[in-house]
Amino acid sequence: MTIASFHSPSRRSAIGRLASLRVQPTIVLSIAIVALMIAWSITPGLFTNHDPINGVPAHKLLAPSAENWFGTDHLGRDLYTRVVYGTSSSVSSALIAVVIGVVAGGLIGLLAGFFGGWVDIVFARMVDVLLAIPKFLLAVIVVTAIGFDTTNAAIATGVSAVGLFARVMRSEVIKTRQATFVESSFLLGGSRWHILWRHVFPNASRSVLPLAVLQFGDSILVIAGLAFLGYGDPPPASDWGLLISIGKDYLKWPWLVYAPAFVTIATVLSVNRISRWLRKTD
């Protein structure tokens, strides 16, 4: 290999692409935190050997220590264990909410942006109504209508996100529909449904992934807020919002609030950081 071939434009562009993939330490930390939360939600028993429901009355309200990392609650239960086991409910509920928002909102935005006309008018008015109601208030209305439960809280959170995904998808579809390759496909005799699913949908949905990641973190906050207000599963459930709600009654032992709140905030900030990174790399 000659020196000239080594420094060829194609070689330099390949090196540039590899350099652009360099991940910042904050991204690595954020991914590690999210990965830990997912591991907690899937196999909580690997991270703790305490019982999340039954405690030791003699060990109640102990401060954080090597034995009890987050301390113990008013019933002598290890708070770290409660937080770990509560991750499954919090993460799975947020995932349900995101899926509902992406599927329902994405489909509405896809059809409205592609077909236009009266389809766009009808769906646009529906989206305007959803966006006119504050997101948390809409979630409270829905969960009150269908019942107090963590799954219902997830459904309510997903419904409140439909308008956001529909608006973003619609704008991306309108922009993609005007692209040259779409017009060429029309001129070549492609059917509207073929063009919709083969060309418009794959290109318009690229902006949905960062938004879905961002909405995942936001859903964790909304579901935690609903659980804090009592709209989730009742005790002895250990949803993060419920743990904070219980801890607020014991202000002399602040770790009962700080521990679940810290985990919630760290998870949401990590998800938001990953979402911003995905938008930049897109």
Rank of each mutant, 00 (worst) to 15 (best):
S207V: 13
L110G: 04
P52K: 03
T264W: 11
L226M: 06
T26K: 09
L188W: 08
W40K: 12
L130E: 04
L46A: 11
T81A: 05
I133D: 13
V28M: 09
H7C: 02
G217D: 02
K60C: 08
M126V: 11
S92C: 02
A14W: 06
P260Q: 11
V127I: 14
I274V: 15
S219L: 08
S93M: 06
I96H: 02
I220F: 02
R198A: 12
I3H: 12
D51K: 01
R279I: 15
S219I: 07
P260R: 09
I220K: 01
Y85E: 02
S65R: 07
I220P: 00
E183G: 14
V182W: 04
T281V: 14
F148S: 08
I121G: 07
E172N: 09
A153T: 08
A212M: 01
N49D: 13
V263C: 07
G117K: 09
V222D: 03
R22T: 12
Y85T: 01
S205F: 09
S93P: 03
S92P: 00
A58M: 10
Y80S: 13
R279M: 15
D149F: 11
L62M: 12
G225Y: 04
G158Y: 10
H7I: 07
I220E: 00
L188C: 09
F186W: 11
R177S: 09
F181G: 05
M169Q: 11
